[in-house]
Structure formats: structure tokens, C-alpha cells
Amino acid sequence: MKTVFKRTTGLTDAETHYCPGCTHGIIHRLVAEVLEELDALETTVGVASVGCSVLAYHYFNCDMTQAAHGRAPAVATGLRRVLPEDRLVFTYQGDGDLASIGMAEIVHAAARGENITVIFVNNAIYGMTGGQMAPTTLLGQKTATTPEGRSSQLQGLPIRVSEMLATLDGAAYIERVSTHDPVHVLKAKKAIKKSFEIQRNRQGFSMIEVLSSCSTNWGLTPEESLKWIKSQMIPYYPLGIFKQQPCIGEES
């Protein structure tokens, strides 16, 4: 018997607290598999954020710390600057964390070209606190704080973070991927791996935005949630590479 698929050693033996079908679990696994494949579990420090993934330090089998809400890129900057250059540093942040309270930190980390990897989990809502509107909530989307659906006049338009950060010269690599089916999960893993390789080559700031589900707060089943990513999120948040500094393609 050949083993085709087994649990990565990049995850600890802890069971996650995530709701059934939550794609945070898939994204954790992808990051963990990449760190295992890069043989980087002993040389990586991750920064968990505030949100459903606040306990990510229990799950990743590498050194982890946890930052105040939105401040993961600032903590990662500190780590980057005090640790030897061969270490890998990543943040794992939700869209509430990264795009509202932490918008300043992420913009300036990208502008400075900090040599870190950012895993940005966009589920278009605040998951942990009970489904309030996030900056990424789609127009018309019902949340606890937009019971009639988000309106552009009352709550403004959703922010496309990848496109926005791609305008900054400091950003080396920015890609948006999704988790709604096995093919896209494989593509997401490839993008995450590329981002860590860029960091390893000291090419600067990279961010992978991963479209993710929140069945509990969207009020859908796990399967319906993945269909919702495909039919509702991807048209507004198109997948693809938004920034790739010329040298990166040549080197890999």
C-alpha cells in the first residue's frame, strides 16, 4: 500500500475548535504542509491574530506567538528584525483583523517591504464575535450589523485588499486564491508555498488572500457555503496574481 494522503507533521496533535466545515481548517493544513515540505518547521515563527484563528498557536507545529487585534504585521516586523535572516515569519489573519482594526499595520508592513508572509483569510464577515459586517462584506450581504444587507450608502463599498496592496512598491508578491473545491485548494497551496519561497529568497513582503467560508454566520451548510464562495465572492474578489515583482518569476 502506498500512502496517498496523510496528516502533515506541520500540525500538532490538537483537535481544532472550528465549526464543522470551516475552511480555516483547510488553510491551516495547507500552511502546515508547506512548512513541512520546506523543512522549515524548526525555523519558522507564526503570529496568530484575533478572530476565530486566535488559538492557531495550538495547532501549528512551529514556534508561534499571538498579537493584539490587527497588530500581527507589526509583531511580525519585530520578529523579522531581531531573528536571524534564515528564519521564516508569517502572520495568519482574518479580514476583520487585517482589514479593519489592522488596516494601518498591513498597509505599512507592505509599504516597507517587510520580508514576511501574510496569510489573509477572507470570509467576508467577523466570525468569532458573531457575524458582524467586515470591510470585506459584500453588498447586499446580511450580517448581524447589516440585517437588511450591506448598503453602499450606509456602510460603503467592500475593500479589495489584494488589489489595494498591490499598488504599493514594497509588496513583492500578492495572490488571491480560494478553498471552494479540491482543485482550488491545490492552487492555494501552491501560492502559499511560493510566498514562503519568496521570503526565503529575501525578496520582501508577500500576501496570499484565501477566500474562506463561515457557514455558521452565513447561515448556510458547509457545502452551500463553498458554492457561495464560488457564486458570490469570486465575482467581486477575482482570483489571481495581483503583484509579482519581475525578478520573482525568473528565480523560481
Binding site: M1, K2, T3, V4, F5, K6, R7, T8, L11, E15, T16, Y18, G21, C22, T23, H24, G25, I26, R29, D181, P182, V185, L186
Partner: peptide
Amino acid sequence: TSCAACARMCPDTVITVYRPDRKQ
């Protein structure tokens, strides 16, 4: 068919997939 689509979509790493050797 040991395609592992199930394991790749499982958020809780519940699934291990094996493929039998040709002989078997």
C-alpha cells in the same frame, strides 16, 4: 479510487488515503 479529494477538502484532517500496489 484513492483520488484523495475527500482528504483535501476535510477541514479536520480526519482522512488518510492509501493506494494498493499493482500486484495486490
